[in-house]
Lab assay of single mutants.
Amino acid sequence: TFVALYDYESRTETDLSFKKGERLQIVNNTEGDWWLAHSLTTGQTGYIPSNYVAP
């Protein structure tokens, strides 16, 4: 799992909003700078900017 370093507000319907400190499970990280992730807090799935999270 990864932890959010910053808050992120989604800009498209495929993005995932999250708050700093939220735990995220990475589903697919082969898309370059945008990873498909599942929030362990909200249960939602969407794309996140990879530079906003850390292991």
Rank of each mutant, 00 (worst) to 15 (best):
V27T: 07
Y8K: 02
N29G: 14
W34E: 04
A37P: 00
P49A: 04
S10I: 04
Y52W: 08
P49N: 08
T30G: 11
I48L: 04
N29Y: 14
T14C: 15
E22W: 05
W34T: 08
Y52G: 06
G46A: 02
P55R: 08
S17D: 05
L40W: 09
V53C: 04
Q44Y: 09
W35M: 06
Q25P: 00
D15S: 09
E22D: 14
L24V: 05
A54W: 09
S39G: 02
S17I: 04
V53R: 01
S39A: 04
D7P: 05
S50W: 09
V53F: 07
G43W: 05
K20L: 05
G43F: 07
A4Q: 00
A4D: 00
F2G: 02
V27W: 13
L40Q: 07
Q25Y: 15
T42L: 03
T12D: 11
L24C: 02
T41F: 09
K20S: 07
K20G: 04
D7S: 08
A37C: 03
R23V: 15
K20F: 05
D15K: 09
W34L: 09
P49T: 02
N28Y: 10
S50Q: 07
Y8H: 06
T12P: 02
Y8W: 09
L36A: 03
T30V: 10
V53S: 02
Y47F: 12
E9M: 11
D33Y: 15
D15R: 12
R23F: 15
E9V: 14
T42I: 01
P55V: 10
V3C: 07
E9L: 10
F2C: 07
Q44R: 15
D33C: 14
E22T: 05
N28T: 10
L24E: 00
S50V: 08
K19V: 09
S39E: 01
N51G: 11
D33A: 13
R11D: 11
G32Y: 08
T41L: 14
R23A: 10
G21I: 00
D15L: 08
A54N: 07
G21D: 05
G43C: 09
T1C: 14
W34A: 06
A4T: 06
T42S: 11
K20A: 12
T30M: 13
T45I: 12
S10Y: 03
Y52C: 07
A37Q: 00
G46Q: 00
G32M: 10
D33G: 13
I26V: 11
G46N: 01
Y8M: 03
I48T: 01
K19F: 08
N29V: 14
H38D: 02
G32W: 09
A54I: 14
G32V: 11
E31I: 13
L5P: 02
Y47M: 10
S17L: 03
A4V: 09
S50L: 04
P55N: 08
P49F: 06
T41C: 13
V27E: 07
I26L: 07
G46Y: 01
Q44W: 08
I48Q: 00
D15V: 11
T41W: 12
W35H: 03
D7I: 01
S39H: 10
T45R: 10
H38M: 15
A4K: 01
D7Y: 03
F18R: 00
N29Q: 14
K19T: 07
F18W: 01
E31T: 14
A37R: 00
N51P: 06
I26G: 02
S10V: 04
Y52K: 06
Y8R: 05
G43N: 09
L36W: 11
F18A: 02
S10A: 15
S10L: 03
F18Q: 00
T42C: 03
S10R: 10
Y47E: 03
Y47N: 05
F2I: 04
T30S: 13
K19C: 08
Q44N: 12
Y52S: 12
T1H: 11
W35P: 02
S10C: 07
T45C: 11
T12Y: 14
W35L: 08
S10F: 03
